[in-house]
């Protein structure tokens, strides 16, 4: 397995380089850029523009610019925002905790709910509970996240006035855990309901496959209680595919949920990407794109490794 992981890590290097080249090229193709604001300004002469271009290194050929970016990126110098002139790494570090708070809560909520619900629907297949849950998961999977968010705001924020409409905290209030929790509930529910739908469906399907297998009948014949049968024998095997699905969700934990953050005014990584995209703030965009694609690559690797570790039938070759 050690050699397998090493090989996959080595394969990830050209993949990540390719991704960074393409990202760089896309961002360079987008019009605007740091000088766009000056170009329409009559007080800025062409000479000034040239000088600014030179300061930003924009007069160099593209491959040189890319190599310059890459060599600095690798040693932790991710450049400065064109808009706020703060270091990119600092900006990301500022937003990251907010996104981790939001997505971490989603992650835990979904796991805590998905496992019992998925198991119950499979054990009580075709019961009213199963039909209700299956219908609901299907509905949530078919709902655009942003609309679900709007509906939750209308229902629980505007009509019932149970929760705040957005933001992370009540303005002008010092940090207060209860207040933070109240602000978390609606955005967390928005993302969690959709994810819950997919996880429950996965677990239900793999539980159904597991509980019809021969070894389950043997275990039952031995006189095991239904509870230990389901939890110790079935769930342990049925959860393996779910583990890989959860591993593939990991990047979201850090990249955030752009649309939900946008609707609820949650100042996380998704918002940072959105604000930078609408202002053509390349250094920040490049940083976020690099981080998020690297996370996706490693999450895939992690999913494969964990799967092989948990399921001895899978052999690495």
């Amino acid at each position: 397995m050690g050699t397998y992981i090493t090989r996959r890590l080595l394969q990830a290097i050209p993949l990540l380089l390719g991704i960074s080249v393409v990202s760089f090229a896309i961002l360079k193709a987008v019009p605007g850029g740091p000088l766009a604001a000056y170009e329409s300004n009559p007080n800025v002469t062409d000479e000034d523009l040239r000088r600014l271009e030179h300061t930003f290194g924009l007069d160099q050929p593209l491959p040189v610019q890319y190599l310059g970016w890459l060599s600095k990126f690798l040693v932790g110098d991710w450049g400065y925002s064109f808009v706020s002139h703060q270091p990119v790494l600092g900006l990301i570090g500022e937003r990251l905790p907010n996104t981790v708070t939001l997505m971490g809560t989603v992650f835990l909520t979904v796991l805590v709910l998905a496992i019992p619900i998925g198991v119950l629907t499979a054990v009580k297949q075709y019961s009213w509970f199963d039909h209700l849950v299956t219908g609901a998961t299907f509905a949530f999977l078919s709902t655009p996240t942003f609309w679900l968010g709007l509906l939750l705001i209308i229902a629980f924020g505007l009509q019932l006035k149970l929760f705040p409409l957005g933001g992370m905290a009540t303005l002008g209030m010092p940090f207060d855990p209860i207040d933070r929790l109240r602000h978390l509930i609606l955005p967390v529910a928005t993302i969690a309901l959709v994810q819950l739908g997919s996880h429950v469906r996965y677990l239900r399907a793999s539980m159904l496959e597991t509980i019809t297998q021969d070894y389950m009948r043997t275990a039952r014949a031995k006189g095991l209680s239904e509870r230990s049968l389901v939890v110790r024998h079935a769930l342990k095997n049925a959860a393996i595919p779910l583990v890989t699905v959860v591993a593939l969700d990991l990047p979201e934990l850090f990249v955030g949920a752009l649309v939900t953050e946008q609707i609820f005014g949650w100042p996380g990584m998704g918002r940072l990407f959105w604000d930078s995209a609408t202002r053509s703030d390349y250094p920040v965009l490049m940083g976020i794109l690099a981080v998020s694609s690297a996370l996706i690559v490693f999450a895939n690797l992690l999913a494969d490794v964990v799967y092989g570790y948990l399921d001895p039938r899978i052999r690495f070759s």
């Binding site: 993949l15 390719g18 991704i19 393409v22 990202s23 896309i26 961002l27 987008v30 605007g32 990047p251 990249v255 752009l258 649309v259 990407f273 959105w274 995209a277 609408t278 053509s280 965009l285 976020i288 794109l289 998020s292 694609s293 996706i296 690559v297 895939n300």
Partner: peptide, 16 residues
């Protein structure tokens, strides 16, 4: 490589 790009991010960049 195409799989490793965050799709929504790219869509937003193209939209901009």
């Amino acid at each position: 490589m195409m799989y490793s790009f965050p799709r929504l991010f790219l869509l937003i960049l193209f939209g901009v």
